[in-house]
Design a protein around this nucleic acid. Sequence first.
DNA 1: TCGAGCATGCAGTGGAGCTTAATGCCGTAT
DNA 2: ATACGGCATTAAGCTCCACTGCATGCTCGA
Lengths: 335, 335
Amino acid sequence: MLDVRRMQVLLAVVSARSITAAARSLGYTPSAVSQQIAALEREAGLPLLERTPRGVRPTEGGRALSAYAADIGARIDEAEAVLADLRAGRSGRVALRYFAGAGAALVAPAVAALRRERPGIHVDLRLTDPDDPLPEVLDGRADLALVLRAGPTPVVEGVRFTHLCTDNYRVVLPDGHPLAARDDLELADLAAHSWIGSAPPGPCLDAVLTVCAAAGFTPAFTVRTEDYATAQAFVAAGLGISLIPGLGLGDRPHPGVTVRDLRDPEAVRGVYAAVRDRAPAQPASTAMMDALRTAAATIGAAANAHDRAGPPAPTPDDRPRPGREITGVGGSPER
Amino acid sequence: MLDVRRMQVLLAVVSARSITAAARSLGYTPSAVSQQIAALEREAGLPLLERTPRGVRPTEGGRALSAYAADIGARIDEAEAVLADLRAGRSGRVALRYFAGAGAALVAPAVAALRRERPGIHVDLRLTDPDDPLPEVLDGRADLALVLRAGPTPVVEGVRFTHLCTDNYRVVLPDGHPLAARDDLELADLAAHSWIGSAPPGPCLDAVLTVCAAAGFTPAFTVRTEDYATAQAFVAAGLGISLIPGLGLGDRPHPGVTVRDLRDPEAVRGVYAAVRDRAPAQPASTAMMDALRTAAATIGAAANAHDRAGPPAPTPDDRPRPGREITGVGGSPER
DNA sequence: TCGAGCATGCAGTGGAGCTTAATGCCGTAT
DNA sequence: ATACGGCATTAAGCTCCACTGCATGCTCGA
């Protein structure tokens, strides 16, 4: 295989039309350059330079080879530029898997922020609900997966979990409901009330049924709907109460409803980012991770604000919002 | 600058999905490959491989870089193929300058033979008549020039001359002419006869006038024509005698004429190939040179055959031939 | 629990590639 | 005409890179 380094030396010599001049521009002695050229001519099996009284002139082989050297040099520069972009997080890919509940409140603002700050990063987004995304993380098809887990930080061989925020079920009551007088509730308190089913059939609904069963009852659904905004509207209309995950509430609950925490430890759920244990630090991946953390923190701050202030009074711009639209949900990590 | 050799190592590793396997295929120890990769990662500033329990997997940077490695490797292979073609004389360029008189008898068969045997070689042919081609040879615009010189082998600083053949003026007489009784003639013998001018005005004609003047007379032209075949036809018709360069006679004189040597030393001319002294041996150039030498030798052999046998009797295929057509002139160096 | 296979780290060695210094060649200036 | 400067080349010496050999740590499968 031809030595590319020597080809670059040849290119410099051909460009400078002199070995001495090329040596100057390369920071070598003329002797070194001459030896490189001699070695290259040995490799090529052809004379590459013709020695003239004033420097050198390329032979046909020398011209051909230095043309290749220029071409290859350009490729190398290009590769270096690609690496520099990758290194600086100006480009790259990150494959993110998420579950439906995280889409609106967490993923949308995080990806929006990432795209704003690092437009070169390509995000490969896929909803894995109801499948488990961990196999994809483990075998490298995904760099990052959002998972929702009850209980303490999960432990899975080969995966590192980072807690992003909680996504506990919260109790949504019509304003003025008797239970709204208490700061937090237990699941058993809700057993006797009419329920608004707030999730599509699937793992989310199953989780609600499971925790209720653990509390010893089966919720009596008056109405079932597939999205949280509609469910809140039903609650506001007084049709019943509902359990809605914090992320589903967005940064502001629907007007006419009051939100209360649920004290049941069974209903404590965390949103985690799962990454492969051995995955080396990839700028694109860490940037995505940062964006998710920032988005989660913003959500948490908003949720805390509600907790402190209670349900806010309707304001002029507090018009009803369509359920899953992203606008304003979670805000953006700007600042 | 990224080290291409290391990039090739990376490519092997990524292809083999294992450092050990790559090392086997490269003939190195795994340790060496591992160290190369580590160095490349240091250069790149990015992790390139992710270590898995069973071998390694490329990161995004590793994939990008190994793609460049493959691309660059292909370029190198291509360059090597070009050099191999050049080395084997399967390709290349040769710039040949020639004078009009050599075109038909020498250059045409030589180039034809070269194209037949080395179709990849591109021949840059140019007629330099009446200019001197040596400057082009000296400064590299031409690799080879045919020159016609009277007297001994010329000596020019920086140019090497190779004698190809002679191109002496020969005396062309009508069959049965009194002078045809002698084997060779001197210029003075021709002074009193009618002459057929056989060359276009220019250096060729000047040369004839010069040698005649040296012999003490000015030829009395009955007819002047621009090509040697026509001149021979005039001679055959008895309109006069003519002086025609050997190369202009082709391998067979015109029927009805007798050719005799001219003993005058002034009229001895050699055809030389001129090459740059310092030009390194280029396969394309030496192949051209060989073809010219072969063509010249073939001409010489034919001429000698005439000398020994005298003008041959017309044979069935001895139909009149148009003057400068190449067919049969000089033949081809096959055998 | 052990062994096979993988990647890695360290110490040691050989060679590639650099530098310095000397030589030869050419063109030009003195 | 001779000397000088610029050019390429060569020889000798030295440095450091890259390889080998060996030992270690890790994971997986028997």
